[in-house]
Simulated scan of single mutants.
Amino acid sequence: MRRISVIGGGLAGLTAAITAAEAGARVTLYEAHHTVGGRARTADAPYRTNEGPHALYYRGPHWTWLKRRHLLGPLAPIPPLEGSRFRFRREGRLRKVPPGAMLRLVRRREAPVDRDFHGWAEEIAGEAGARAAAHYSAVAIFHHDPGSLSAAFVQERLRRTTALPPEAHYPAGGWGSVVDRMTSMAWNLGVRIEIGSRVAELPRGGPVVVATSLPAARALLGDPSLTWHSGRTALLDLAVRQRRGDAFVVSDLDAPGWVERFSAGDASLAPAGEQLIQSQVPVAPGENKAVGIARAEELLDLGYPGWRDRTVWRREALAAGRTGAVDPPGSTWRDRPGVDRGDGVYLAGDQVAAPGVLSEVAFASAIEAVRLALPEGRPAAAA
């Protein structure tokens, strides 16, 4: 049996380990923390907040990969759009529909790679429509200025996030339930999982898949070229006492920002009588967490009246460089750090050269890494 080592036990690492074991390899997975899952971990009850990706996009490559292995599990029902109180902040007020000009950009021909989104979109939808579309797309970008990024990059995410029926789905019980099923499958396939094992040197005796963040991979491999653009996002999680009329989602079209009541579709995420609300507001370089939290509170004031008096639990964080890759004008996913690093070393994660939206990049790069590392096993992306 061919030996292969996987460093990192997040979504990319678990995907690589399972794919390699299915191809007949003897796999050892090293995870520095005492639990696997990486940013896909879900906090323990009573408030089951996700620490990483919040949605699983239908039709993405990882959807098929998980479903065929019975790893997808039950999904929380999505509240019907009619009556779900999906709201948009526009010109300082809550509205029920986005500007029609914004939606024209979804139906438009493929956007150019070498132009910034705002400049391209303004010619089609006007300045207000371009700004609203850029800010709405931030839910899948986590960047303070999506309009400055490649038009093709932003348009793809705009299409995915505005699709009807909605592409975004939520694993019941949070992402941790998916991680648990992936971990169990890895064990059953014979993967050796060593938790609490921080790797300082590459293991010998076979190919290695480095499925860590780019900064960690850069330090481990001593390769200063392992960098790419990402965002900084202020995160505010709340549990509030239930109240009729609370919004399901508030999408900020005046600036990038998103607030969602996750327990609307999955009551198991919070105790009875309480609602779990998670907010993400991108912040610019030079801005601190407090700036983003203040903007999140403005959205909460609009969509969740009286939330301060109803709050029973609160948590704040700043996600810096942990929000996936963003592509500036003139670049695509192919320009990011390549999967094959030479000498039997392969890279996987959400900021490397693989297609997809958010966590889809981690799945796609992990499968590609194993395909290159074990060509005789021929692991298939959707098999």
Rank of each mutant, 00 (worst) to 15 (best):
A272S: 15
A364C: 14
H62W: 12
G60E: 04
L56N: 00
P46N: 04
V36M: 02
T35L: 12
L149T: 09
A239P: 02
L75K: 04
L347H: 03
Y58E: 05
A128W: 05
G338T: 12
L71K: 10
M185D: 06
S225Y: 03
D44N: 05
S177G: 10
E110W: 13
Q242C: 14
H54E: 05
A383L: 15
D116V: 03
P379E: 05
F86A: 12
V291G: 11
E31I: 04
A211R: 02
H70C: 15
A362T: 01
R90C: 13
P328Y: 12
E376W: 15
A353I: 06
L214V: 01
G265A: 12
F153G: 02
R310A: 06
R315Q: 11
G38I: 01
G24F: 02
A270G: 07
E360A: 15
D252G: 11
A380M: 15
E201Y: 03
L105A: 10
T64H: 06
W307D: 11
R2G: 03
E123Q: 02
E201H: 08
H143M: 09
P77V: 00
Q351G: 04
A163H: 11
A128F: 06
A138S: 12
A163C: 13
A152R: 08
A272L: 14
E51P: 07
R160V: 14
V191I: 01
D343F: 11
Q155I: 04
A17Q: 12
V208F: 01
E260Y: 15
E298Q: 13
A163K: 10
V357G: 03
N288W: 12
L103T: 06
I193V: 06
Y30F: 08
S197R: 08
R115D: 15
T323D: 12
E360M: 12
G356Y: 06
W228A: 11
H169I: 15
V208Y: 00
G147A: 03
I367H: 09
P61M: 14
V36E: 09
R157F: 04
I18N: 00
V27K: 04
L226W: 01
E31W: 01
T227A: 14
A121E: 03
A294G: 12
A32K: 09
R26V: 09
R93G: 07
E167D: 10
R232A: 14
I195L: 13
A140W: 00
L221N: 05
E22K: 05
T42P: 04
G129Q: 07
P165F: 07
V154Y: 02
G100N: 04
A151S: 01
A20V: 03
F262S: 07
V326I: 06
R90M: 12
A267W: 14
A294F: 13
S197A: 09
V357H: 09
Y170G: 07
L158R: 02
R334H: 13
R181Q: 00
E368M: 14
I7Q: 00
I367L: 06
Q351W: 08
P285C: 02
S148F: 04
F142G: 02
P80A: 10
G100D: 07
A128C: 09
V199F: 00
R192H: 05
R308G: 15
D254T: 10
S331R: 13
